[in-house]
Design a binder for these strands. Structure first.
Lengths: 139, 139
DNA sequence: GGATTTGAAACTATAATAGTTACATTATGG
DNA sequence: CCATAATGTAACTATTATAGTTTCAAATCC
């Protein structure tokens, strides 16, 4: 997958699993739709599994299912599971002798927090069921 | 500077220039505060210059100034100037034989557009003057 | 017990970006 | 007019993050 498209791929993968309700999807099947390697998909699904969004089964006939109804999984849940940082990054270096540089982090933290306070409710408002509804019955 | 912190550095740099109203700041002086190389700063300021946010002067006593009052420069202006893509990226590959994959881009475009429609007004609301007001008189 | 799958470790490949070096061009001021 | 100092930019290297790959142990089904 492309760099930085983790969230997009997570939504794709979860939607795929949601549309196959009652079945188990293998990482190989999912990888087919995303056009990438099964291990990449398993790594992504491991994050979603640790977050309690999907459940996995080992062995033959193993694979992945949603851990709860698609209507109870929001895009915020997916975002938080696969994307640790915020939307913006702060520089890690600065010149501590400069008064502006010293205060910049605090100021930017405030700006970034205000932005995120607008974004997160929007992501919480949309569920996987909303996304799945826009797709044909099965994949 | 750290990867992906271009917007944060842009705000830092612009604030620094704003606080030195009436003077010209050289890329070397700015680089000192950000703790990076002057060329990196010149590259960033070239983007802000093309966007009409700063003005530059060549030669000895050259350097950078704001192209208009700090109260008329928003963080959105800075964001748009230095960060071409949106907040999320779409994967560039997909399996076109999969109906879900085929429609995913359209769906995600919609989701991303709704998110950005919440973010951009927030960035437009904050001006450089707002940021500078939170800092001591001069650097 | 054979087949199939997840989980994870270890490694390589790739891409984006920061940092560096170098230099032509432009401007100031004595 | 010449020394000085700055931008603008090209070309290159270094770094970092992440995707992709290979491999294999453990789990599970039939």
């Amino acid at each position: 997958m492309a760099p930085n498209s983790r969230f997009a791929v997570a939504v794709h993968v979860l939607t795929l699993i949601a549309l196959h309700k009652g079945e188990r999807l293998s990482s190989r099947e999912v990888a087919g739709s995303v056009a990438t390697n099964p291990v990449v998909i398993r790594r992504l699904l491991a994050q979603l599994s640790r977050a309690g969004i999907v459940a996995s089964a080992h062995g033959a006939l193993g694979g992945f299912t949603l851990a709860r109804p698609a209507s109870e999984i929001t895009l915020f849940d997916a975002y938080r599971a696969v994307e640790e940082g915020g939307f913006f990054a702060l520089p890690e270096k600065k010149n501590d002798k400069c008064p502006v540089a010293r205060r910049m982090k605090t100021i930017l933290d405030g700006v970034f927090a205000r932005v995120e306070s607008k974004v997160l409710p929007e992501l919480k408002r949309t569920t996987l069921a909303d996304v799945a509804r826009r797709l044909p019955g099965r994949a």
